Computed example of a mutant assay.
Amino acid sequence: MEIVFIRHGQTDVNKDNRLQGALIDAELNEAGRDYAKKAADNFDENEFDVVYSSPMKRAVETAKIFTKGKKEIKLDKRLLEFDFGDWDGMKMEEIGEKYPDVVDPWGKINRQYIKYAPNGESYEAFDERCGEFLDEMYQKYPDKKVLVVAHGRLIRMMAAHYLTKGDMDLFDTMDNCALAKFSIRKGITRMDYYNRKLA
C-alpha cells in the first residue's frame, strides 16, 4: 500500500497562531484557498484508488480542491484533528507564557500538556485511533494507493505510529498543503517523504 497525506490549507486560526484542534471547525481563508489551488495544479489525483478526508471543513474543502471533483471523498471521524479540550483556540504565546514546560524548542505543544488540560486527548488515545485507521486501510487496500486529507498534528501522529511507536514529538508539523508519503509492504513501513511542497 502507498498512503499519501495532505495537510489542509491555511485558516485564520492558523494565521493567528492559535491551537486548532477537533473543536475548532474553521474554513480555509482566502490565502489558504488560493495556495491550495496552486498546489493542486501540480498534483495528479488520478494516481489514487481511494480518497479519505477528515470531516472538518478545512480538510474537506482542501480535499475537493486537490481531487478537482473527480474522486469520491470518504469522510472518517478517526481523521479529526487532535482534541486539545479546553485549550482549543488558545494563542500559542499565551500557552508559552503560562505553561513553558509544555512547549518544545520548536514551539510545539508536547505530551505533558495533558496535566494542565485534563479534558484534552492523550497521546495514547490519539495513537490508538490513528493506528486503527491505518490498520483498516492496509487490510482494505494492501496493493492500492490511498490519499488522506487531514490535519497537522494528526499527520504527525500517523508518521509516529508507523516509525516511532507513537512519539509524535519527534516530528514537526507539515506546512499547509504539504504532503507526506509512506509505503507499506508485508507490514513493513518506509517513509518516502515528509513535508513535500507542491507550490
Rank of each mutant, 00 (worst) to 15 (best):
V4Y: 06
V4Q: 05
H8Q: 03
H8P: 07
H8F: 01
G9F: 07
R18C: 08
Q20V: 08
G21K: 00
N29P: 06
A31Y: 15
A31Q: 14
R33W: 12
D34N: 15
F43A: 05
E45A: 11
F48I: 05
K57T: 09
A59I: 01
V60I: 10
T62P: 04
F66A: 03
K71N: 05
E72K: 13
L79R: 00
L79F: 00
F84D: 00
G89L: 06
E94S: 12
D101K: 14
V102P: 01
W106S: 13
K115H: 11
P118F: 13
S122Q: 07
Y123K: 05
E124A: 08
E128G: 05
E128M: 12
C130N: 05
F133M: 03
D135R: 14
Q139S: 13
Y141N: 10
Y141K: 08
P142L: 07
K144A: 11
K145Q: 09
V146C: 06
L147I: 04
R153Y: 11
A159K: 01
Y162Q: 10
Y162E: 11
L163E: 09
T164L: 08
M168E: 08
F171M: 03
F171C: 01
D172A: 12
D175L: 12
D175W: 11
N176C: 14
L179M: 11
L179E: 03
A180C: 06
A180S: 07
K181M: 14
G187A: 07
D192N: 14
